[in-house]
């Protein structure tokens, strides 16, 4: 249980893991933004190929990566159904009341499903190849310009760092408290919703009391280690942009090229339309 938080990180020491976290964060953001402009199967195909090749280079097992999709499976199914029956696109093949199915609606639903899946897979790859610590550093570094508007970038970074540090500890503690109350006959997973909510009290109160106790000692420890001593706080970790990041950027650049040009040059969607249409008729 205590490994869940860091469990997302899948250490393989690959080139993707060694990339500058800032580059990865920026690429992931670009990846997310770009996907909303993709509206062709060529584009989705290119996206899928990109995810697949990054996964291979990162040496993350495909199965592990696909596990991250589990959480959105229901959503994907729901959106697909809505799109198949309610889109009202194209010539209906089948119609009942307000529901209709057409080749266009089928294809549209497939695109929506692909979009959501790819939307999840990209950031998942980021978390599989980047430690939370590196992510914090990257975000802090990317937020640096905000210092100009007096935004406390440094404090926010320390808060994020402490939060990350404390999550596994607090999870361990939650686990221990749950076991201890179970040992006193508490049942946490039976009864109706009210009973279950009430059963949380013996867990949450000790957890909060414990968190306050920890916070007190942590505050002392921060003071003892001269937090806020110097206005010119220095940094231990220096992020460096290297050749790997260049490779990553170029790979992503090719994706953009394929997405933009592919949609224009090839009438891939038309071919698929014909294929599906001939199949359903």
């Amino acid at each position: 249980m205590k490994d869940v938080v860091f469990g997302q990180y899948y250490p393989t020491g690959s080139g993707v893991h060694h990339m500058d976290a800032r580059a990865k964060v920026v690429l992931a953001l670009a990846y997310i933004v770009l996907i909303f402009f993709v509206d062709s199967f060529v584009g989705y195909f290119a996206y899928a190929l990109f995810v697949l090749s990054v996964t291979l280079v990162a040496k993350v097992p495909l199965r592990t990566l696909l596990r991250s999709v589990k959480g959105v499976a229901v959503l994907v199914l729901f959106i697909s159904i809505i799109n198949v029956f309610f889109s009202g696109l194209g010539e209906p093949l089948w119609q009942w009341w307000i529901l209709s199915v057409s080749v266009d609606s089928l294809l549209h639903a497939a695109k929506m499903a692909l979009r959501i899946l790819l939307l999840v897979l990209g950031p998942a790859l980021l978390t599989y190849t980047t430690t939370p610590m590196e992510l914090t550093d990257a975000i802090e570094s990317l937020m640096t310009p905000l210092k100009w508007v007096r935004f406390p970038v440094r404090d926010v970074a320390v808060i994020m760092s402490i939060a990350l540090r404390m999550i596994p500890t607090l999870m361990e503690e939650t686990d221990r408290i749950m076991l201890a109350q179970k040992a006193r006959g508490a049942s946490l997973d039976t009864g109706n919703i009210f009973k279950r909510v009430k059963a949380l009290v013996p867990i949450l109160i000790p957890l909060f009391v414990g968190a306050f106790r920890r916070a007190e000692e942590l505050a002392l420890a921060l003071d003892a280690r001269c937090y806020n001593a110097s206005p010119k706080r220095t940094r231990y970790r220096i992020l460096r942009f290297g050749w790997r990041d260049l490779v990553g950027l170029l790979a992503f650049g090719s994706l953009v090229a394929v997405v933009v040009l592919g949609a224009v040059r090839y009438d891939f969607d038309g071919m698929i339309y014909d294929l599906v249409a001939s199949w359903v008729h």
Partner: peptide, 20 residues
Amino acid sequence: KRLRFLVGMVFQYPEYQLFD
């Protein structure tokens, strides 16, 4: 359920479970 009443378990630092 019966087992947990037959075998009582006191965890390390049990005072950290007090809540009521």
